[in-house]
């Protein structure tokens, strides 16, 4: 079980993903009255980064931008650990599950969760309207509680995989074209299902915006590849 102490989201403007996530994180930390130094873990979830960057993890850039425990190591210095995880649009729950496990390793503190994507370059087609979303999570406390997650890859269709490919005409690496599975038609009233073309940040933004305990506590994310995750909140 992992508890969300607070969250903030905003459409990605012209400032870029790192600035958007950093600004949201600073505002959230101020609003939740959590000390910056109490954050021991940063985990980012998302697929698309500027110029298809893969190294280092985006979360390390967030840690640097926040100036969080960026000091030489001493025998008793406190430090943060940052990394990224992803699985298409199911990334928010992969991140939340990773946060729960990391909080067992570094107990007593908080995990800053960041979700977001940005257009890799102007040459890539970009049908998305990304939303950056940040959350502060811990194992205990007040707030929405993620009770369980269930992943299903039985409907995964390999033809839907998205690749970076080289466009000879543009002389640039771009997002390749891909298929997508169909939007699921039938859902129960108690289940919130986002659109199949939403990216990670938007899925969490939309769910948390309408979430209230005791009403819609099931969140189902269907990735355009057919993979799904169903999450139960309390």
């Amino acid at each position: 079980m992992v508890v969300i102490h607070g969250w903030k989201s905003a459409p990605l403007g012209r400032s870029g993903l790192l600035k958007s996530i950093t600004n949201l994180s600073k505002k959230l930390i101020a609003e939740t009255s959590i000390k910056l130094d109490d954050i021991n873990i940063i985990i980012h979830g998302g697929v698309y980064r500027r110029n298809f960057r893969v190294e280092p993890a985006f979360a390390t850039h967030v840690q640097d931008a926040l100036g969080l425990k960026c000091t030489l190591m001493t025998q008793d210095s406190s430090h943060c650990f940052s990394f990224d995880v992803s699985d298409g649009s199911c990334s928010p729950y992969v991140v939340l599950d990773a946060a729960r496990n990391m909080l067992r390793i570094k107990p007593g503190g908080y995990c800053l969760i960041t979700l977001g994507d940005e257009r890799p370059n102007p040459q890539s087609k970009w049908p998305y309207q990304p939303i950056s979303c940040v959350m502060i999570a811990s194992l205990e406390g007040e707030g929405p509680r993620l009770v369980s997650t269930s992943y299903d890859l039985s409907e995964f269709d390999e033809s839907t995989c998205v690749n970076m490919t080289f466009d000879e005409r543009k002389s640039r690496n771009v997002i390749g074209s891909n298929n997508a599975v169909k939007q699921p038609a039938n859902t129960t009233d108690s289940q919130f299902v986002g659109k199949i073309n939403w990216l990670s940040g938007r899925h969490m933004h939309e769910f948390l915006s309408q979430y209230s305990s005791g009403t819609t506590n099931l969140h189902r994310v269907v990735d355009q590849s057919g993979k799904t995750v169903t999450a139960t909140w309390n």
Binding site: R50, E55, P56, H61, D64, H79, C80
Partner: peptide, 14 residues
């Protein structure tokens, strides 16, 4: 540990 003061010293991208 992540010592993020060194984060920009190795960049892998397209």
């Amino acid at each position: 540990f992540t010592l993020a003061q060194y984060t920009n010293l190795c960049i892998g991208e397209a």
